[in-house]
Design a protein around this nucleic acid. Structure first.
Lengths: 205, 205
DNA sequence: TATTGACTATACATTATGTATATCTAATTT
DNA sequence: AAATTAGATATACATAATGTATAGTCAATA
């Protein structure tokens, strides 16, 4: 006799709600905690009012929970505005806008800093975050191709992409954030990114 | 009766030797290991042919060992050349040289990458490494003051210092190292640092 | 009314860091 | 030569974290 199975609206809704509650508790714990070292599934479970095993049941592992938190932050981080930015007529203005969007993203929820810390101890989590960052690199590549002169070498384009990728990364943002507001950091990064475009302009044109 | 104590040349020499052996084993373990998560005092002790307690006896804690490894790498990393670089007549050439020295430093021993990873999980270790990096910022500040025009604002100087500080940091080096040789990374960073000096030049002069 | 899905309770295995105590051995001191 | 001392070892223990296993609870569903 095959086991009869069913989908339960009320059940899955309740499960989704606890899932949200755990993610919320996790990001709160990340925000308030001193370091990622203090981030334990035990504390998260307690903060969410569930058992540690419920966390495993929902996310499979510590890594799964961290990825879910990152995805939640990304969902509410304003990255959807990138689509509009990329279609701007002036690619240099689009780059400025892209920097602005990412500065806002990195500063919106301080839990992202802790998530980047988690990359250090969990290579697979690091890879997952890197994959999510590759979208930034692809957008950047398209933008650079629009900005670069015909004569600009592939190497010069690659250099510009990778340099701006590094400039718009979280570590750079965090480094410049000491003693600066989000907008001030944004302006500094924008200037540096514009300067990184110089080698793409053919002096003969 | 007060306990008589003495210093033993043979003893302290042997202790220093085991200390060196443990540091060597630790940096080797960091280099060869997949991630900092796998770095345990147990494995280091085994690799060094001593007991885990000997490691505690010599370094006090995991953090102490990591700091000792960093200091050992710094001693052999060529940072002493900074003194010569800073006294160069042309401050822009000095900056180029400084970038070169740090690119060499970051690339010399891949254990430095793992040590930076360790900063994520141990705030006090992170602080210790940051203090060691402040020397770079101070040198940079002095250099920028020599390069900047009289009219350059303090804010513009600070921006240049912090931006170049970020550009010469390990995370930037690591990010640009994907698919690039040390020298190639060096050239990219040098260009970016030179570009960061532009706002310091008074256009009226 | 029987079954199923999400969560709970409890227990266990494993791995790390860090501390405590007693012991061993070779280098020094008296 | 004998006592002592510094460094290393052996063994044990406390604590905390991840992850797995097994059985039980309870409301939603068939």
């Amino acid at each position: 006799m095959p086991p009869r199975s069913y989908v339960s609206p009320a059940r899955s809704a309740a499960a989704a709600e606890t899932r949200e509650r755990v993610i919320e508790a996790a990001s709160r714990t990340l925000r308030e905690g001193e370091s990622i070292a203090r981030f334990s599934l035990d504390s998260v479970a307690k903060a969410a009012g569930v058992t540690r095993l419920t966390v495993y049941n929902q996310f499979g592992s510590r890594r799964g929970l961290l990825e879910a938190v990152f995805d939640e932050i990304a969902r509410h981080g304003g990255l959807h505005q990138l689509a509009d930015a990329m279609t701007m007529a002036d690619p240099r203005a689009a780059l400025d806008r892209m920097v602005e969007i990412f500065c806002t993203f990195w500063s919106r929820d301080s839990a992202v800093g802790r998530l980047h810390d988690a990359m250090a101890t969990d290579p697979e989590f690091a890879e997952a975050i890197r994959e999510r960052n590759e979208r930034r690199r692809r957008g950047l590549t398209a933008l650079i191709d629009r900005i670069a002169d015909k004569g600009a070498s592939p190497q010069a384009r690659k250099d510009a992409v990778d340099l701006i990728f590094a400039l718009t990364s979280y570590p750079t943002f965090a480094s410049l954030s000491a003693g600066r507001s989000r907008d001030e950091v944004c302006r500094v990064v924008q200037r540096a990114c514009r300067a990184a475009l110089a080698p793409l302009s053919n002096p003969s044109s």
